[in-house]
């Protein structure tokens, strides 16, 4: 899987390939956008009040024009907020490689946390699909338990959590197999 855009965020080791890029389910993004849709309609509901109010204040019939102007700028604010939300959603990503799992957590515009754990450190991967929405839209939380000092990984609201779990488990299986293959017969005896 060739993902050149990720090379700025993470540096891969020799022989390391990206298996999967996991993001939150789009429904999570749509839920955020619903608020923006509500904000879109608010000025329209109070438009008669604004138009009449401006007409009275200006003592001329320019209410509709001023409302149109202000509404257009309001749309520009909604437009910017939409793209801010999308960027925040899009840059929040988990990258599964054949050697590691990366958690790239974008917190607003000016804060980002990147953590990684090695595939061989995995102890258990569990998934939780909780609620009607999660069941219907097939998203859930993946809990990756790790050994050692690395903290556990939580992939929240991931799309197709079962597929993600399978890929992680396959990568883990391959890593363990490779480690066993590398073990010399002499080591096995001891």
């Amino acid at each position: 899987m060739h993902l050149p855009h990720l090379t700025k965020l993470i540096s891969l080791e020799p022989g390391e390939t990206v298996l999967m890029e996991v993001r939150r389910h789009m429904i999570v993004f749509y839920a955020r956008i619903l608020i923006l849709v509500a904000f879109f309609f608010v000025p329209l509901f109070i438009s008669p009040l604004i138009v009449l109010g401006v007409n009275k204040m200006a003592q001329s019939d320019i209410g509709a024009i001023v409302f149109g102007f202000l509404f257009t700028l309001w749309l520009a604010v909604i437009w910017m907020t939409f793209f801010y939300q999308w960027t925040d959603y899009y840059l929040d990503v988990w990258v599964i490689t054949n050697k590691r799992i990366f958690d790239i957590d974008q917190k607003g515009f000016f804060s980002r946390e990147i953590s990684a754990c090695r595939i061989e450190q995995l102890q258990d991967v569990s998934i939780t699909v909780d609620g009607i929405m999660a069941t219907f839209f097939k998203y859930g939380t993946i809990h990756i338990h790790t050994a050692g000092e690395s903290h556990d990984f939580l992939i929240k609201d991931a799309a197709s959590p079962m597929d993600v779990k399978n890929i992680i488990m396959q990568a883990h299986g391959r890593t363990i197999d490779e480690a066993v293959m590398k073990t010399t017969p002499a080591e096995i005896v001891h």
């Binding site: 050149p4 855009h5 090379t7 700025k8 965020l9 102007f69 202000l70 700028l73 520009a76 604010v77 910017m80 793209f83 801010y84 960027t87 899009y90 840059l91 515009f109």
Partner: peptide, 27 residues
């Protein structure tokens, strides 16, 4: 009002562009 809003848009665009160009290259 238009000018103030345009300045906000330009600043926001610069921040968004920085993120898109820095972390999502060739996407």
């Amino acid at each position: 009002v238009w000018g103030l809003m345009f300045i906000v848009w330009v600043v926001m665009s610069a921040i968004l562009l920085y993120h898109w160009n820095s972390y999502s290259i060739d996407d």
